[in-house]
């Protein structure tokens, strides 16, 4: 299966979805006006990946900013990962937030409370 590699833009994050290593990373800003257009291919990819996933899938989310329409799409991404986890595979979501960024920590905790999947909150020092 092909991996996904998308370079960041002013409004969309840097994305790496690696099918061979099971490493998934979203990093940067996610503030597009049309977030469904950006995230749909990622959700579709996870659907496909979930049919034959790696033993361990590690997800690193390092978002600086995200808008509310991205927040719903990110939940869709997580729900696909939750399905993979529920099927008996190891999946962990590492949610990074900058020191003192309480809003970003709280956003991670919101996802954690909605989903049944291992979450780690990781504070990044400046």
């Amino acid at each position: 299966m092909e991996s996904i590699r998308i370079e960041k833009t002013r409004k969309t994050p840097d994305v790496t979805f690696n099918a061979d290593t099971g490493k998934i990373q979203i990093e940067g800003k996610s503030i597009p006006e049309n977030s469904i257009e950006f995230y749909k291919p990622l959700v579709d990819w996870l659907e496909e990946y979930g049919k034959n996933p790696q033993e361990n899938t590690e997800v690193n989310i390092k978002l600086e900013y995200f808008n509310t329409s991205s927040s719903k799409c990110i939940l869709d991404v997580f729900k696909k990962l939750e399905t993979i986890y529920k099927n008996g595979n190891n999946v962990v979501i590492n949610w990074y937030y900058e020191e003192d960024d309480e809003d970003m920590l709280e956003a991670g905790e919101d996802y954690q409370s909605i989903l049944k999947i291992p979450f780690k909150m990781i504070e990044m020092e400046e």
């Binding site: 006006e33 977030s35 469904i36 509310t68 329409s69 927040s71 919101d110 409370s113």
Partner: peptide, 20 residues
Amino acid sequence: LYKLILNNDQFSEKGGGGLG
């Protein structure tokens, strides 16, 4: 309320998530 709307799977026809 925010969490409820976040988790409601709905997008408006304008593409917003109803959270703005």
